[in-house]
Simulated scan of single mutants.
Amino acid sequence: MISPRCPFPAGPGWLALLLMACLLALPAAAQERTAVIGARATLSDWSDPLEALGTLEAEESVTLSATVTETIAEVAFEGGERVEAGELLVRLDDAEERADLRVAEARRDERRDAVTRLARLQERNLAPRAQAEDSRAQLRQVEAEIDALRARLDDYRLRAPFDGVVGFRRVSVGTLATPGMELATLDKLDRMKLDFRVPEVALGGLAPGLPLTAESAAYPEARFSGSVAAVGTRVDPVSRSVPVRAVLPNPAGRLRPGMLMEVTLQRRPRQALVVPESALIPEGERHYVLVIHEDEDGRIERRRVRLGERRTGEAEVLEGLSPGELVVSHGVERTRDGARVRLLGIADETTSVRDLLEAGRGQGDA
């Protein structure tokens, strides 16, 4: 008698051979569970990105110039160094003004002595009151002249109005400075202003304090974080865009005014349920994932999910999953609903899919 499934005759001597042949004829999937890699559905910081190009400006920037015509007597900087507020940068030749000040101070001392003498005489009724008052008026006049001379002397000394980095030195001692002539530049680089424009349609999602990141070709591996400081009050009727100003901390001083930055605005910051994009099974406009039931010996459940936004390698899940649930992220095409799988491991921030695959190959899994 011949078996319809295994072509061996029945009989006591053929029983072991029949069983072995039938096992060898079974497919590999029936003998061993499919090995897969899983990933947890986790809550993660999420936002809707909006990209733009912007230009950096110093938080404070000033060009120092002369207000009088005079030769430069001293240049107290070389360029590129940090200076403190009030520090002397350039001094013009002020010998004549200082001489005028000394003359005025001597005249003030003379007037003070005259006022003192007349006051004593008036106490003894030996001097008219009008003469004493006239002497005091002359003293006040000289003191006002001294104040004016001292204020004029300040025009001959250019000092840093705030802490910052001074620009290159472009003048020398002996140069004739004229009003409006650039003598020094000063920039405050501890924080930078970043100006850019976004489309009018994005206006509803903009507000001061909105986080953003910025990148520059000068530092390919660096990402600078900041926030929106102000949103423009007018929309350009031609480009239909609105200006935005952000602030970026710059403690290391790597950013410079005029740099072009690639800006990514983090709109609608929120906590979102996230899964790897590799776990998704698209079917038309629908999406599914394969949920691994760890408490049911690795049983697979095919489940429909509703997605939100996406970013590189990840997708936001709005409905269909709960935080902590395990889904198949690698090996989706090798299993199906209702099957049972063997979990090679769970990919996360500390363990990559590549590490798990290599560990699986070491255990004999292709």
Rank of each mutant, 00 (worst) to 15 (best):
residue 31 Q to H: 11
residue 200 E to T: 01
residue 81 E to T: 02
residue 67 T to F: 09
residue 220 P to K: 11
residue 142 V to W: 07
residue 84 E to D: 10
residue 82 R to F: 12
residue 331 G to Y: 05
residue 212 L to F: 13
residue 214 A to K: 04
residue 262 E to H: 13
residue 101 L to F: 11
residue 250 N to A: 02
residue 177 A to P: 12
residue 219 Y to H: 12
residue 64 L to S: 01
residue 57 E to F: 02
residue 32 E to R: 11
residue 165 V to S: 05
residue 31 Q to F: 05
residue 178 T to E: 14
residue 145 E to M: 07
residue 218 A to I: 08
residue 91 R to T: 11
residue 101 L to K: 02
residue 269 P to N: 14
residue 190 D to E: 15
residue 106 A to Q: 10
residue 338 G to C: 08
residue 281 I to C: 06
residue 318 L to C: 01
residue 133 E to S: 10
residue 90 V to S: 09
residue 103 V to T: 13
residue 169 R to Q: 10
residue 167 G to C: 05
residue 143 E to I: 04
residue 342 R to C: 01
residue 213 T to V: 15
residue 319 E to V: 12
residue 151 A to V: 06
residue 261 M to F: 11
residue 302 R to P: 10
residue 315 A to S: 10
residue 61 S to D: 12
residue 236 D to W: 05
residue 360 G to S: 06
residue 236 D to T: 02
residue 306 R to L: 15
residue 288 Y to A: 07
residue 141 Q to E: 15
residue 44 S to P: 03
residue 129 R to A: 15
residue 343 L to F: 04
residue 41 A to Q: 07
residue 264 T to A: 15
residue 37 I to Q: 06
residue 257 P to M: 06
residue 114 A to I: 02
residue 256 R to V: 02
residue 358 E to F: 12
residue 196 F to R: 01
residue 349 E to K: 10
residue 148 A to E: 14
residue 229 A to T: 04
residue 7 P to T: 00
residue 15 L to Y: 10
residue 73 A to E: 14
residue 258 G to R: 02
residue 61 S to I: 06
residue 182 E to I: 03
